[in-house]
Amino acid sequence: MGSSSSSSIFVLSIVILFCFIESSSAQYTYSRFYGKVSLALHYESLRPCPYCSNFMVNYLPQIFSNGLIDIIDLQLIPYGNASITSDKVITCQHLPIECELNTVEACALQVWPAQDKHFNFINCVETFVYNGQQSQWRSCYSKLGYEEEPINECYNSGLGRQLELGYAKATGALNPPHKYVPWVTVNDVPLYDDYRNFQTYVCNAYEGTKPTACQAQLMEITSKTKSDQILEVTFMDETSHKTNIRSPMTKARRQMKF
C-alpha cells in the first residue's frame, strides 16, 4: 500500500512539473530553450544620414511595444561610416557634432547597460536629430530624469573614445563589409536595402515557438528593391564635412566640455 502511494505521489509530481513548464512565461521559453536572434544596427548619429535616425525613431521602437524584443539580442553600434587614420584619429563622415553624438551614445550604452534605459536615451537623442533639432539633445537628460554627469565623465575621460575604437573594430570585422548605413544584420547576415523589413527576418530566424508579434509579420520575404528605386541609405563616400577625434596620446588632445 505504501509503495502504491509513493508511486502515485511520484506520478503526480511529474504531472505538476510538466504543467509548470507548460505554463512558464514566454520569456522563459524563448530565452532558455532557444537562443535569441541577434539583431545588430550599425549606424551614425547625425541627420546627414537621415535614414539612420528614421530607422531608430520610426522602426526599431516597434519591437519594444509589440514584445518582439523578448526573442532579440539587440546590438547598437554607433560608428557607421567613420574611419581611423594610421595615427589613431577617428574621422567622422559629416559635421563635428556627429563624432560627439556617436561617442555620447557609445557612453550611454556603457553607463546604462539596461537595454530599456540606454535605448530610451539614444532614441530621445535621435528623435531630436530626426527633427533637425540635434542641438537640443541634452534636454533628454531632464526629459528622462537621467543623470548627466556619468556621460560627461565617460566622454571627457577618454573612455568614450576607447569605446568608439571598439565599435570601429567591430564594424571593420563585418563579413561581408558594410557598404552603407544603416547596416542591419540578423544573426550576422546583412539585410542590405531591405532593413526596414527586419521584423520578418527576425521571426523567420527564430527557431522556437513564434511569439504573438510574429503572427502579424509576413513569413515570406517579399520586399525587393526595384532597380529604379532610390536606396534609403548613406554610402561611405558621401562625405560633406569631416571632423576628427584625436588619440589621447597625441599632443593635440583636448577634452570637449558639455
Results as ranks from 00 to 15, higher is better:
7 S>P: 02
118 H>W: 08
247 S>T: 04
33 F>V: 04
239 T>F: 03
178 H>E: 00
33 F>K: 07
187 N>Q: 04
8 S>C: 14
168 A>K: 02
102 N>E: 10
158 G>K: 06
86 S>V: 12
79 Y>I: 01
254 R>M: 13
147 E>N: 13
1 M>D: 09
159 L>T: 14
258 F>C: 06
45 S>H: 02
146 Y>T: 05
139 S>N: 11
78 P>C: 06
139 S>L: 04
17 L>V: 15
167 Y>G: 01
23 S>N: 14
103 T>L: 07
65 S>E: 09
246 R>F: 10
213 A>S: 15
224 K>E: 10
74 L>I: 08
245 I>G: 03
81 N>K: 00
188 D>H: 14
235 F>D: 05
145 G>S: 02
96 P>F: 11
119 F>M: 06
82 A>R: 00
58 N>Q: 12
60 L>C: 08
143 K>D: 08
240 S>R: 15
108 A>Q: 07
53 S>L: 01
68 L>G: 07
183 W>P: 01
31 S>F: 04
212 T>H: 13
97 I>A: 12
119 F>I: 02
161 R>D: 01
152 N>M: 08
240 S>E: 14
114 A>D: 15
179 K>Y: 14
229 Q>Y: 09
77 I>W: 08
65 S>I: 08
254 R>W: 03
3 S>C: 06
111 V>F: 01
181 V>N: 00
168 A>G: 07
174 L>I: 05
166 G>R: 05
168 A>H: 12
122 I>L: 00
86 S>G: 11
234 T>Q: 08
80 G>S: 03
249 M>A: 13
98 E>V: 01
212 T>Y: 13
227 S>W: 14
86 S>D: 14
168 A>C: 05
36 K>L: 07
55 F>Y: 09
148 E>C: 00
233 V>R: 11
69 I>Q: 12
68 L>W: 06
74 L>P: 03
60 L>G: 04
12 L>R: 04
120 N>Y: 01
17 L>T: 14
171 T>L: 02
203 C>E: 10
151 I>A: 00
150 P>W: 11
209 T>G: 10
42 H>A: 08
92 C>Q: 02
96 P>W: 12
122 I>K: 03
22 E>N: 09
224 K>C: 06
28 Y>S: 08
65 S>C: 00
173 A>N: 15
27 Q>E: 15
42 H>P: 01
199 Q>A: 09
85 T>I: 07
